[in-house]
């Protein structure tokens, strides 16, 4: 169930410990971070803090 792609040996798969140490798909990597960071930059909906405060009060 794991590989549905031709299994070429991938010389880069074990090289380096950083995602960014792999040069080829730099654009994908950069934009992947962008997708994640876009959410980080969104204001947190009030629900979150309200729910946490409620839970906090309940536990006291």
């Amino acid at each position: 169930m794991h590989t549905d792609q031709p299994s070429k040996p991938s010389p880069r798969s074990d090289a380096g410990d950083k995602f960014t140490s792999e040069p080829l798909p730099e654009k994908i990597g950069k934009n992947l971070q962008q997708i994640y960071n876009d959410v980080l930059d969104e204001p947190v909906p009030d629900d979150f803090l309200n729910l946490l405060s409620q839970a906090d009060e309940k536990s006291n």
Binding site: N37, V39, L40, E42, V44, F48
Partner: peptide, 18 residues
């Protein structure tokens, strides 16, 4: 703990979204 948890909310949202 609460303060740190609150600081992590954007990360929780980002991870959940993905």
């Amino acid at each position: 703990f609460k303060r740190d948890l609150i600081e992590l909310i954007p990360h929780l949202r980002a991870f959940a979204r993905s």
